[in-house]
Nucleic acid binder design. Structure first.
Lengths: 187, 187, 187, 187
DNA sequence: GATGAATGAGGCTTCATTCAT
DNA sequence: CATGAATGAAGCCTCATTCAT
């Protein structure tokens, strides 16, 4: 792993452990086993790592989605998307929120859309054939709905894992409710 | 306005302007026109203002919702809820995200659920009669769906106003798509 | 002595000991026996102490001049001025050069003229009566000559004490040559 | 231009732009278009370039003086010397002060005298024949006076160009006053 | 000789927090 | 209760210097 990648990996860990506020460059470099000054050869500041983290995060989500989502019906696909996003949220806990809020606090806010685009695109590419074969209603605007879908799944997953510290049973029930809701919303 | 309220108001402004990271107690007290030390008579630290900010925020949302949402049909009510949450998000931009992430970074994470409860409850109280009179499907779990609704509306609104810097036209289209989606999801 | 004065005094000592380059705020505050942060309540940076140091320096020179220079003739006065400036240069060695160069390196260059003004004025006030009573030539522009006098005395003194590390005998000879030169220049 | 010369030239530029304090080796090498490490093949440290800069500076002054100063009378010569030193000071602004103070801050202080010697010598060689032919008074100690002359001209020039930011008119008047003063001082 | 990525010491500066008034 | 000058810990960041290539 080269220096830049090591910084990004360490930054993710430290941000998750400490939160943006309490995360320090010193700790990131310690974890990455590089010198303090080396950090500044690659990044301007702690927050400027955020867009790169976001990219890595999106890559991971996409990877997972690609592996898991290839159902025979829209039902199976939606189920897989929900499961995947819930699992990743569980694994990376507050990372998404951190990225959101990290980007918000910098000049990189605008980058967000660009970084997330492939994710929205992936979902849209799932929906289009389903719309064409009539599995979902014709009036669906696939581009718009893909944002709505991801948003609603992510926000519920964060609710569950970050704030409610919900039991796994509870999560299952919520996921089912969400599944039904989305499916009806699309049909 | 008493000192505590002045601190909360100033804190909101400063957090919005600078983000959590760069917000300082010095600036909060300057804006509140009180002395450095006075801050610590009311709050333990910068982040401990967060739960109070969240309460204020939720109060404002509730107030707005109470004023605007009293439609004759579920359609009108959903429309009003969407409009209200979009408007508040537009006005307070990243505040919700800040609160999320601010709470995440402290021991107050657990408080979130408690603070947001009245909001979920408000939505649930809207849904229950509609479910009883058959306007929405019987299988809806009102408690669960209220979280899903708020989450999906908020997340789309944030997308629009924080990241995409979407045009007002675009926002209208998205809101319509969301409206249809939610409505079908509930029926 | 209040904090600001203590900072200035310490800064002078440290600058003299270490030079501008190697002087550190840390050492200044250590010498002043105040906290690191306190420094920044009074000054923006190490170099921003320079104008204040310059003021103190000019005050000291003026004080010395006032005490020593009150001769019966222009000859005695010039002699005293030379002696005084030489003595102060000897005592404070490179301080003047430091101030020059310190000011040059900051936005405070313009302040120099203002700070030195009383010194030029003092000399001019010496010259005016001597010009009126014919001790010095009528064509002397007192304002201009006062700058020239101070400059030439200071620069020779610095030569002697800073660079040549001249013997006291040598200094005496130079002072006499300078005295004769100035006197003839004025007559 | 070989690497060493390129370093010296760049160092001069950077010192003039940033001052000793803020000048960095990084910037010097960037301007010289050589690698970081190459600097240390030629110089020990940032300040160790100073004596070389001083030499270059003195060479330039001597060159200018040689070209311009060859008047028929002491009057013309003094005028040329004043003009030349003023012009160089105008062009290189604070460079002399920087060199002074740069040398002061290092072990190279002693070098100054040695480096400046040719300059004093040049002036002395001007004065000797004038003393012999009676144009200037016999009591003049040419070695001493040459230091005094250069010092007083330089210090006034610095006053004008560095601190007062004097208008060109004003400069002319000062130069005339200085000229008269020096001439009378020598006669 | 020349390079430039990497180092890490250490100065700068901020800022939460205290406490005498 | 309120103040705000003072504190000093601690993070940021630079930059002279090294060294493997």
């Amino acid at each position: 792993m080269n220096k830049e990648e090591r910084i990004i990996e360490s930054a993710i860990e430290v941000f998750l452990e400490k939160g943006i506020e309490k995360a320090t460059v010193s700790e990131i470099v310690k974890k990455a086993e590089i010198a303090q000054g080396t950090f500044y050869l690659y990044f301007d500041s702690k927050l400027s790592v955020m867009p790169k983290i976001a990219e890595v995060m999106v890559e991971k989500i996409l990877e997972e989605l690609s592996q898991n989502v290839d159902g025979e019906s829209i039902e199976e696909e939606i189920k897989s998307v929900i499961d995947t996003i819930f699992n990743i949220t569980k694994e990376y806990k507050s990372l998404t929120t951190l990225i959101y809020s990290g980007l918000t606090q910098t000049q990189y806010v605008g980058d967000w859309e660009k970084i997330y685009a492939p994710l929205y695109d992936f979902i849209e590419q799932l929906l289009i054939p389903r719309k064409n074969n009539g599995e979902i209603r014709e009036t669906v605007n696939t581009a718009f709905i893909s944002k709505i879908l991801i948003g609603s799944i992510e926000s519920l997953a964060e609710q569950m894992y970050l704030y409610d510290e919900a039991s796994e049973e509870n999560v299952i029930e919520y996921k089912e409710e969400l599944f039904t809701f989305i499916l009806k919303g699309l049909k």
